[in-house]
């Protein structure tokens, strides 16, 4: 069936099998492979994107459920920051991307797109979180490399930079 959505500002209309997961549609239909898949139980959060500004594990949604939605993936995050006038650093990235590099909050980088998308959405809901709140807010995103120490620091740093 036909499904239409806006991904990182561009509209995409495609024919999909009804059972196609949103994450597979984004990766294989739209062709944006920055969003990763780390599990088959919606546990790891590597596939987190923004749907209508809210963070969503894109393996928990069918592509057809995103009909008419506006989706942002890691590839489009810096652009949204530029549009919002909050882009920062040498690379003109979203402050969360900048904070992740500055704090060494990634190693293999596989969980990173999902982690960054979850963290930006979390800070929108809670712009001045405590460390405990950050940990609670990112509970649904797993990382095997960093032990989370520097991820928590990066989110703190992004929050401080924004306030």
């Amino acid at each position: 069936m036909q499904v239409s959505m806006t991904v990182n500002g561009d509209s995409h209309s495609r024919d999909v099998e009804p059972r196609t997961l949103l994450v597979h549609h984004i990766r294989e239909g739209v062709g944006l492979t920055g969003t990763n898949i780390g599990c088959d139980t919606s546990s790891c959060g590597a596939c987190t994107v923004h749907v209508g500004g809210q963070s969503v594990k894109s393996c928990t949604m069918l592509a057809v459920q995103a009909e008419g939605e506006s989706i942002t993936t890691i590839e489009g995050l810096a652009e949204t920051a530029r549009a919002d006038g909050i882009a920062t650093g040498e690379q003109n990235w979203h402050p969360m991307q900048e904070a992740f590099q500055q704090c060494h909050a990634l190693q293999c980088g596989y969980c990173t797109p999902g982690m960054v998308m979850a963290a930006t959405s979390f800070l929108k809901e809670n712009p001045t979180p405590t460390e405990a709140e950050i940990r609670e807010g990112l509970e649904g995103n797993l990382c095997r490399c960093t032990g989370y120490h520097n991820i928590v620091k990066a989110v703190q740093s992004a929050a401080e930079g924004a306030s």
Binding site: R27, L32, T33, G34, T35, N36, I37, T73, I74, E75, L77, A78, Q91, W93, Q97, F100, Q101, Q102, H104, L106, G109, Y110, T112, P113, V116
Partner: peptide, 19 residues
């Protein structure tokens, strides 16, 4: 030194096997 690997990983430009 900040890592040279990070920009590609932070923007989704990077290619993992499934990509």
């Amino acid at each position: 030194m900040l890592r040279k690997e990070d920009p590609k990983l932070l923007t989704g430009e990077n290619k993992f096997i499934d990509d």
